[in-house]
């Protein structure tokens, strides 16, 4: 742990702080928000930023700051669960494919390759057209869409580790599959898999925000950040903070995660000399 802390760059600290803040808001946002999500607090719509309304007011005169905090669970919470599903099943399937190989690997890989040949937004639109856009559908859909990518990463990492001599030695000793996966393979691929989990989380946040922006994501009266941008589009021509603030919230979250991943993967991915 001290090693991780020593490596922390300024960017990494900022990224981690943003991430921790938004996860806390996903859990407690509705408690700390100054107003109810639906409460109309002012007759003036699209008010600019002020001390009273830090993010201004929306098209109905509701407090944007409160609405963003209330919306955190739909953006961060939903994406977090979906990313857990994607990375979790990708990791599990990837390790199965790597350890068992042969036809197991063949079937899993071919099936997921088919999924990957459908662009993610297209898949999302088709699913929403067929099943509607309730929160469970959105979570499951995003989880399924990003499983193949997580699977590819986990499988290739696990195949590399599986071919190493220490795994062969354990196998020759007669160790069971569960031991091989848990003690020999998993600890050696966990770092990159975690970094990939972060990336997947970012993709899912962006996908779901995009869907909400099209009116095909989280449905009213609930609102995630993408929906907040959509419902306030009328204020765009005045440059109202009601449009910009939720969008900035998304940007801060995704950039924060990217910065935090750099810390996880142990250093400067970009800008290294050589």
């Amino acid at each position: 742990m001290s090693g991780v802390l020593r490596r922390l760059s300024a960017g990494g600290i900022v990224g981690l702080a943003i991430l921790v803040f938004w996860v806390a808001m996903a859990l407690f946002g509705s408690v700390v928000a100054p107003h109810e999500a639906g409460a109309i607090v002012d007759m003036e719509v699209f008010l600019p930023v002020s001390a009273q309304f830090p993010f201004g007011t929306d098209y109905l005169g509701r407090d944007m700051f409160s609405r963003v905090l209330h919306g955190t669970r739909y953006t961060v919470g939903v994406a977090l669960i979906a990313a857990l599903i994607a990375s979790g099943s990708g990791l599990l399937l990837g390790m199965c494919a790597a350890v068992w190989g042969g036809w197991v690997d063949g079937i899993i890989s071919r099936t997921l390759d088919t999924l990957i040949s459908i662009p993610s937004k297209m898949f999302a639109l088709v699913v929403v057209a067929a099943f509607g856009s309730s929160v469970p559908v959105l979570i499951l859909m995003a989880g399924v869409i990003y499983t193949p990518g997580a699977y590819r990463i986990a499988r290739s990492l696990a195949v590399t580790v599986n071919a190493q001599d220490f795994v062969t030695v354990a196998r020759a000793r007669g160790e069971g599959t569960l031991y091989l996966v848990r003690e020999e393979i998993l600890p050696n691929i966990l770092g990159p898999v975690l970094a990939d989990f972060g990336l997947r989380f970012v993709y899912i946040v962006l996908l779901l925000a995009g869907m909400s922006f099209l009116g095909l994501g989280v449905q009213p009266p609930n609102a995630d950040w993408g929906s907040l941008v959509r419902e306030n589009m009328a204020g765009l021509h005045e440059g109202a903070p009601a449009v910009l603030m939720p969008a900035f919230a998304i940007a801060s979250l995704t950039i924060g995660v990217n910065l935090a991943i750099d810390v996880l993967s142990g250093g400067r991915r970009s800008g290294e000399a050589g």
Partner: peptide
């Protein structure tokens, strides 16, 4: 690097708006 990372990290509708 910094600029491209920022752009790919934000939703397309933010860029467009």
């Amino acid at each position: 690097s910094m600029l491209t990372l920022s752009v790919v990290s934000v939703p397309e509708f933010l860029v467009a708006t």
